[in-house]
Amino acid sequence: MSETVLSVRNLGRRFGSEGDFVTRGLRRVGLAPPPAVVRAVEDVSFDLKKGEVLGVVGESGCGKSTLGRMVAGLLDPTSGTIDRPDPGGKALPMQMIFQDPFSSLNPRKRVKTLIGEAPRVHRLTSPAEAESYVAELMERCGIDPSYADRFPHAFSGGQRQRVGIARALAVQPEILVCDEAVSALDVSIQAQIVNLFMDLRDEFDLTYLFISHDLGIVEHISDRVLVMYLGRVVEMGSVDRIFDAPAHPYTRALIEGVPRLDRRRTVYAPIKGDIPSPLNPPSGCAFHPRCPLATDLCRAERPDLRDMGDGRQAACHHAEELTKEGEPQWPATQTG
């Protein structure tokens, strides 16, 4: 068993304001409604092992980016703990790679500054070595080092993402949080960047928290997968178990709904409805209004995340039925 590099316990994040002085006063005498609070992330716990890729999937608004930002240290949790690795020297243990390679690079800084500034400030390189340090990183990430004096606008989307990766690697992190890091890229470029991530993992023993809405990429790159719905983990386990035999109807709906090259002229039978508003989540299981298997129990009681016995956890009252052979009725995608 390899060592645990990050452990997250009961992590939660609420957004909402208490309002100004007047609102607070009115609320105290019962004239204003209670503050609207969004529980963006609630009660999320997981461990990251060294060299592992944990994929985080879910629809927009499920809290996966908030989770990533908290893990990366960009946002303080309102409850729970994150035990990060001991920096052990000057290196920074966590780095984040962002979705949009256009807005995540300062347009007024040259690439050599973008990549070289952080290691210089943190004294990971001496000023004398800075240039070769940057050149080496650029080379490793597939950018021609002779472009070090250029500004970000001179690069294409894929190359900018490589600059972003080089910048993250420059401080010798142990864990990379990738928030939709390949979503904005074209298919052929996406494959290049995914391959780069895999190579870097082998070379530097990196650990990834890989956040994406693209199940195809997550299935390809991850060792374990965490599925979120409305701020909570609904299922977590090895990529094989999750994709071969999902134990939560939401996971199943996601996987069934993904268009695939081998599904031609498909008749999609998607789950109904939108993701509910996090301001006013449904009672019981948050997924029950959209779930084809929902019963009265689901409407009344929120299922806890429980162990399924195969190293997987699922938060569904009917998880056993779903994984059983001779599965229950499911409006599966047909090919016609």
Partner: peptide
Amino acid sequence: QGLIASVPVPGQRGGRLQQIPGRM
């Protein structure tokens, strides 16, 4: 062919994706 190969195949986990070098 390159485009098709760049898309991850369901069930084929890990490994390298085929990539098209360069860009348009």
